[in-house]
Amino acid sequence: MNIQVDADKCIASGACAQVCPEVFDLDDEGVIVVLDAAPPAELRAKVEEAAAACPAAVIEVHDQSRV
């Protein structure tokens, strides 16, 4: 799994960090920060939930083979 984000479109809701703090955080301005762009497979469900929770839809989750 590989994660890509469009931080320029982030609206700083913080939903990603609330759902999956192992992978996402917010910087001092409240903008998304990816702590682990290739997290372990056991976090996939939480990462996908965080992506779905993002109101700005800035998180993309890809299989490793697509990277």
Score class of each variant (00 low, 15 high):
residue 59 I to L: 03
residue 59 I to Q: 00
residue 16 C to M: 06
residue 48 E to D: 06
residue 63 D to W: 08
residue 8 D to E: 13
residue 56 A to Q: 01
residue 4 Q to M: 07
residue 30 G to I: 12
residue 52 A to E: 14
residue 40 P to W: 05
residue 12 A to Q: 00
residue 2 N to G: 04
residue 33 V to W: 02
residue 40 P to F: 01
residue 63 D to V: 08
residue 23 V to E: 00
residue 57 A to L: 04
residue 13 S to D: 06
residue 64 Q to Y: 09
residue 49 E to S: 14
residue 29 E to R: 07
residue 29 E to Y: 14
residue 10 C to H: 04
residue 65 S to P: 03
residue 42 E to W: 11
residue 16 C to W: 02
residue 14 G to A: 10
residue 3 I to E: 02
residue 54 C to R: 07
residue 7 A to H: 03
residue 18 Q to H: 06
residue 66 R to V: 14
residue 19 V to H: 01
residue 51 A to N: 06
residue 60 E to P: 02
residue 65 S to R: 07
residue 4 Q to G: 09
residue 50 A to T: 06
residue 34 V to Q: 05
residue 5 V to A: 03
residue 42 E to D: 15
residue 64 Q to G: 02
residue 47 V to D: 14
residue 36 D to F: 13
residue 47 V to H: 07
residue 1 M to F: 05
residue 42 E to A: 10
residue 52 A to D: 14
residue 36 D to E: 15
residue 4 Q to A: 14
residue 60 E to T: 15
residue 13 S to P: 07
residue 51 A to E: 04
residue 3 I to N: 07
residue 33 V to A: 02
residue 61 V to D: 09
residue 39 P to N: 04
residue 32 I to H: 04
residue 26 L to E: 05
residue 25 D to T: 15
residue 47 V to W: 13
residue 14 G to P: 03
residue 56 A to E: 02
residue 67 V to N: 10
residue 5 V to I: 11
residue 46 K to E: 12
residue 6 D to K: 14
residue 40 P to A: 09
residue 26 L to Y: 04
residue 18 Q to Y: 09
residue 2 N to A: 04
residue 65 S to H: 04
residue 5 V to R: 12
residue 58 V to M: 05
residue 9 K to G: 04
residue 56 A to P: 07
residue 33 V to S: 01
residue 45 A to Y: 00
residue 52 A to V: 04
residue 42 E to M: 11
residue 19 V to Q: 02
residue 63 D to Q: 15
residue 59 I to V: 01
residue 26 L to T: 07
residue 17 A to S: 13
residue 10 C to L: 03
residue 32 I to R: 08
residue 49 E to T: 06
residue 18 Q to L: 14
residue 36 D to I: 10
residue 27 D to G: 02
residue 35 L to N: 12
residue 25 D to W: 10
residue 18 Q to T: 14
residue 22 E to R: 11
residue 34 V to Y: 01
residue 5 V to E: 07
residue 45 A to E: 04
residue 23 V to N: 05
residue 63 D to M: 12
residue 8 D to K: 14
residue 9 K to W: 05
residue 44 R to V: 13
residue 60 E to M: 01
residue 8 D to S: 13
residue 9 K to R: 15
residue 51 A to M: 00
residue 66 R to G: 01
residue 47 V to R: 03
residue 15 A to Q: 08
residue 64 Q to S: 11
residue 42 E to I: 11
residue 15 A to T: 05
residue 41 A to G: 09
residue 18 Q to S: 10
residue 35 L to P: 00
residue 22 E to W: 03
residue 55 P to M: 09
residue 64 Q to M: 00
residue 15 A to M: 14
residue 36 D to N: 15
residue 66 R to T: 10
residue 17 A to E: 11
residue 38 A to R: 12
residue 52 A to F: 06
residue 57 A to F: 09
residue 10 C to W: 05
residue 41 A to N: 13
residue 66 R to F: 08
residue 12 A to I: 10
residue 31 V to K: 12
residue 7 A to L: 05
residue 34 V to D: 00
residue 39 P to H: 12
residue 15 A to L: 05
